[in-house]
């Protein structure tokens, strides 16, 4: 069976006046139907840019996919026109953004914003539209959904707003949702509830997920597979359990060293000294070399090709023999 989403050697650059930012520089991964992939990595390593590349919603002007394929249900999205993409966005692939405070439009009611998805993709109107909206709000377990229709975003709590964002993303029954740090802006207890909710909905609808996060605890809880990203490239990817038990890349090992404090954020940890490189001026060799405790001569000269370390476990590191 072919994968639902198959990203191959994706390169998305940002062409700024000062130079080229190689935000996504040859990324490959795949997600099967109903599966959850976790994408982890430090701030600025290109996670969001990867998500936006899949939907082809890149910062304009300047952001561009320069190479690679994004195969979704067997068709290459890179080749699709804007018009064709619009029929996919919100209907087959949708996205939950980080902060529902800013991602919901302050000027429109919940009904209007959730309803828009059905109005556009299913051409619904009036009564039928309203029923669909209520159904979507019930799917994300918003209590007394009927009474929330006329509410505006600012009248709801953060947790409820993020559920509305979930209703918008899941309403039209897409086969893939991309969640870009969907719980970072929430309180810890609300976070747990929200993650459970997503799990339940996934079990119910069979939607596949791409889950972007800083939080390895969340990965352990939500994901089937993990891809670790560093400076625009994926340095290690594997089954979730395999990765946690047998990490091979020194960067992954560094990240996991902090695991006892599972819900600590990667950013705040000092376990890996140094800073990630500037994506506008990457070193010749392994991007992690300046911070790597195991760095060798070859690491500074040549970027390590991706190797298969064991079943379904890929690593880009000179330490791993073929």
């Amino acid at each position: 069976m072919s994968a639902l989403l198959d990203v191959q050697n994706l390169k998305t650059y940002y062409f700024a006046r000062r130079g080229v930012v190689k935000a996504v520089d040859g990324v490959s991964f795949s997600i099967d139907q109903g599966e959850t992939l976790g994408l982890v990595g430090e701030s600025g390593c290109g996670k969001t840019m990867t998500c936006h590349s899949i939907l082809k919603l890149l910062p304009k002007p300047g952001g561009r996919i320069v190479e690679g394929q994004v195969l979704f249900e067997g068709e290459d999205l890179v080749l699709k026109t804007e018009r064709q993409m619009r029929r996919i966005r919100g209907a087959k692939i949708s996205m939950i953004l980080q902060d529902s405070m800013t991602s919901l439009n302050p000027a429109y009611t919940i009904e209007n914003q959730v309803g828009e998805v059905f109005a556009i993709h299913q051409k619904l109107k009036g009564r039928a539209l309203k029923e669909k909206v209520i159904e979507a709000l019930k799917l994300v377990k918003i209590p007394a959904a009927e009474t929330r229709l006329r509410a505006f975003p600012h009248q709801m709590s953060g947790g409820m707003r993020q559920r509305v964002a979930g209703a918008i993303a899941l309403g039209a029954k897409p086969s893939l949702i991309i969640a870009d740090e969907p719980t970072t802006a929430l309180d810890v207890t609300i976070q747990a509830q929200y993650l459970n909710l997503l799990k339940e909905i996934q079990a119910e609808t069979g939607v596949a997920m791409m889950f972007v996060t800083h939080d390895l605890g969340v990965v352990a809880r939500m994901c089937d597979k993990v891809a670790v990203m560093y400076a625009g490239r994926i340095v290690e990817k594997a089954e979730m359990k395999d990765l946690f038990r047998h990490p091979r890349h020194p960067y992954t090992i560094g990240l996991l060293a902090c695991l006892p404090k599972m819900d600590a954020e990667l950013d705040k940890l000092v376990s890996i000294p140094g800073q990630p490189p500037d994506l506008g001026a990457l070193p010749d060799g392994c991007h992690f070399a300046p911070r790597c405790p195991e760095c060798m001569e070859i690491c500074k000269q040549k970027y390590p090709e991706e190797r298969l370390a064991r079943d379904e476990h890929y690593v880009s590191c000179w330490l791993v023999e073929k």
Partner: peptide, 14 residues
């Protein structure tokens, strides 16, 4: 530049 405009595009709004 706001997130809600981004979300509108994500929804497939013309």
């Amino acid at each position: 530049d706001s997130d809600y405009v981004k979300l509108a595009r994500i929804k497939g709004v013309p």
